[in-house]
Write a protein that binds this DNA or RNA. Structure first.
Lengths: 246, 246
DNA sequence: GTCTATAAACCGATAGAC
DNA sequence: GTCTATCGGTTTATAGAC
């Protein structure tokens, strides 16, 4: 009995995975707004109604894909962070940013799904916020490691301007276990946005016929962003750059 | 005869403008991928086929909207640049960036149309590149004015890293009439991407429940971007900020 | 230049047989 | 859990009358 149920559940998981995979393919070809349960079923040789045994509706399938993309990108960032160690914060920073960019360039359509324009008529359910915060939390981890090593510039003079900062930022970044200073957290949010601006322009083709030396331009900009986030250069000028692993 | 033709052309232009306007409304409601000629016709009390007298197909209507959005945003940036004058490059920089952000926040759907993820299955025709470059050229204008005033940091030490820069950047930014140094041009491209990352996050709601003091965060980040672009601060620390018009 | 009518597709979702 | 059949809606685009 439990053997049968085991086999049944395995079969169910396999079909579910096949649907998810085919949906991912169609996502790449047509975009999220045009994702169609019918087309997925057609391609898999299923009746359209069969798909509803696995996903109650279209938005639910979309949510699964979105969560999968967030998790894959988050895992890439976390792995890069773990591999880089905590010895050199600037090196960790570069590693995480490069891992994010690498993932985005390798899977442009999944990237567009989570960091492109919002899908019209789709409201992200609360299940997505956990996976979505893995990347920003990896960046927070780098800043916290730098802070612990005394390598974080606190910009005490600019504390005044950051005064008007929201209670929400406080709630998000000062929960138990987080050690990042509030002013650094707010700076980091802006840096986060700028990092993804850089990546989005490249992924969406806005650098085509404009920039060829994209690795160099990215590294240079990300180094500036590290400074903007408060990470102190480990040396002077180009020494910092070589320390970052060029 | 020419009077009749004049009236006819006027009527034609009016209907064409009405179609464009209604299409813009639907764009705001449903997104670019869902833009439907039929729905436009329905709302205007026209037969679907009548719209084809004005736009040969759906993509052509979309192109018209895209060009319109690029031109409107470009005009906003150019106006801000002209109003700010050339006396204080940092002030001009802030003015142009704020104008871009203001336009984007006021017309989020038109912004998404031109700076969101690419519409699947739609290839931007060459007509769009002229209007699309008005905003980057306004930013170039600020940097060139700073250069003329001797307020541009040339980063001579980092000329080495920018060596691998594309011939395309050279062609784009060193054509007749442009005076921006090539290294500054390449830096500016990265800054341009980061600026729009900042704006996109805000427009697409990624700052919701995270940042409330968005004006302050934006100004702070854009000031850092100015520095990254080579604009020298006009004074020290917070003096630069007040000079920028806070 | 606008209309009606129509072709030839597409979609999400459900009911009920097996 | 998969199927057929179906409801009720959508779309782009064209043909031909007026």
């Amino acid at each position: 009995m439990s053997v049968i149920r085991g086999a049944r559940e395995r079969a169910r998981a396999e079909v579910g995975a096949a649907i998810k995979e085919e949906a991912g393919r169609q996502l790449a070809a047509e975009g999220a707004a045009q994702l169609s349960l019918r087309a997925v079923a057609r391609e898999l040789g299923l009746a359209p109604s069969a798909v509803y045994r696995y996903f109650p509706n279209r938005d639910d399938l979309l949510t699964t894909l979105i969560v999968g993309a967030y998790d894959a990108l988050g895992a890439a960032a976390e792995t890069a962070l773990a591999d880089a160690g905590t010895a050199d914060p600037l090196r960790s920073w570069m590693a995480v940013c490069r891992a994010i960019r690498g993932w985005a360039l390798a899977r442009p359509h999944e990237y567009a799904l989570i960091y492109g324009s919002p899908v019209p008529g789709y409201d992200a359910p609360p299940d997505t916020v956990g996976p979505a915060s893995r990347v920003p939390l990896a960046l927070v981890g780098v800043v916290e490691a730098a802070d612990a090593a005394g390598a974080l510039t606190l910009f005490p003079g600019s504390g005044q301007q950051d005064e008007g900062v929201s209670a929400d930022a406080r709630r998000l970044f000062q929960d138990p276990g987080r050690t990042i200073p509030l002013t650094a957290a707010v700076r980091l949010v802006a840096v986060w946005a700028q990092l993804f601006g850089l990546i989005s322009f490249e992924v969406f083709g806005r650098f085509d016929r404009i920039i060829d030396a994209r690795d160099d331009v990215f590294d240079r900009a990300v180094l500036d962003l590290a400074h903007q986030a408060g990470l102190r250069p480990t040396g002077t000028g180009s020494a910092a750059e070589s320390a970052a692993g060029r």
